[in-house]
């Protein structure tokens, strides 16, 4: 008797959550899978009989067919790879560094500093992007700072030059070597692949590192505080210096948190969207285009919903694979 009423209550209690997640998450994913196999242009229902079924065309147009869709997609992948390569290490190192300093036992007023570092993380991504548009504006704060030390700051959001290209330029390589310029892979020349993040992308990278480090610092801080004091004292007695202690004692002890921070970092950096939407819309010269933004733009601006959905699923796959690879790598090291 009681178990039956309990069973009923259980189902009633979870029903709203199950219903909403089912209708607005599971069902739409299935719908999008179907749409990614069609040429639906947004008119009427995508499930009418008149909608052209194109099979895997939307997917192959991203990988094997020469043309603008593949070029844009590969450009967005390139941009996001550079973005991940800079943001993930930078935010992890900054977060760990700040946590180590805040965790020093002799310092007072830690609460204030912890709050200050964490505050940007809780604010609206759109509002913060507006602030950073001003900070990196032509006549903005960063260029004023650079001007004060005699550097002529770039026009950040109009500058599509890749960082590696700029560095090569300083050692005299202004024109791409023919070997790189004349051979292309997946729709982009080797020269384009090795461009590095554009100057505009760097401004977005700075913004993101600035906003996310606070959250990760809190996670590291919680982990550091969980390390028993004896461990640290023992390593002091053994004569380990600061660097050795960090490398051989502290980091191994906070490995689970390190894994969490790296994983969350990888997952979120492949999803960068709000900042791109507000600050650059993929410009200049498509150097801040990312798969997430490209998928949105393809569907809602170019009305190619099928290809947009296909890009979403490829992005989904990339994120899943990244997470699995990382999990596997950290497991290997442990054993």
């Amino acid at each position: 008797m009681r178990t039956r009423s309990e069973s009923l209550a259980g189902w009633l209690f979870v029903a709203p959550v199950v219903l909403i997640l089912g209708v607005f998450l599971l069902l739409p994913i299935l719908m999008a899978l179907w749409v990614s196999l069609t040429g639906w242009n947004g008119q009427g229902s995508p499930f009418r009989s008149g909608v052209p079924f194109v099979g895997a065309d939307n997917y192959t147009s991203l990988f094997t067919e020469d043309g603008l869709p593949r070029q844009d997609f590969m450009t967005s992948i390139r941009n996001n790879v550079y973005y991940v390569l800079l943001v993930v290490p930078a935010q992890t190192a900054l977060a760990l560094g700040l946590a180590l300093v805040v965790n020093q036992r002799m310092l007072k007023r830690k609460g204030f500093f912890r709050t200050a570092f964490y505050f940007p993380s809780v604010t609206s991504s759109v509002a913060i992007s507006v602030v950073f548009l001003f900070v990196f504006a032509n006549s903005g704060a960063v260029n004023a700072l650079l001007g004060a030390v005699g550097i002529d700051g770039p026009v950040w959001f109009d500058d599509s030059r890749g960082l590696i290209h700029v560095l090569l330029g300083t050692v005299g390589v202004d024109n791409p070597p023919g070997a790189l310029a004349n051979h292309s892979v997946l729709g982009l020349t080797w020269w384009d692949w090795v461009s590095g993040p554009s100057v505009a992308m760097c401004a977005i990278i700075v913004l993101v590192v600035w906003t996310t480090s606070g959250t990760f610092m809190l996670m590291f801080l919680a982990a550091l505080q969980a390390i028993p004091q004896q461990v640290e004292e023992a390593s002091l007695i053994d004569g380990a210096n600061r660097w050795q202690r960090l490398r051989f004692v502290t980091i191994p002890m906070i490995r689970p948190t390190m894994f969490l921070v790296l994983t969350l970092g990888l997952i979120s950096t492949w999803q960068v969207f709000d900042q791109i939407y507000v600050m650059s819309q993929g410009n200049p010269a498509k150097t801040t285009l990312t798969p997430a933004f490209l998928s949105y733009r393809t569907a809602f601006k170019d009305f190619e919903y099928g290809r947009g959905a296909a890009i979403s699923f490829v992005l989904f796959l990339i994120i899943v694979v990244m997470t699995l690879v990382q999990r596997w790598m950290l497991r290997e090291r442990r054993s």
């Binding site: 209708v23 607005f24 998450l25 069902l27 739409p28 994913i29 719908m31 999008a32 749409v35 995508p46 997952i267 492949w270 999803q271 969207f273 997430a292 998928s295 949105y296 569907a299 809602f300 919903y305 947009g308 959905a309 979403s312 699923f313 992005l315 989904f316 994120i319």
Partner: peptide, 13 residues
């Protein structure tokens, strides 16, 4: 599930 890949699916439903 990464939220940003759900944008088009949500619009569809």
């Amino acid at each position: 599930v990464p939220g940003v890949v759900l944008l088009i699916p949500k619009f569809l439903v």
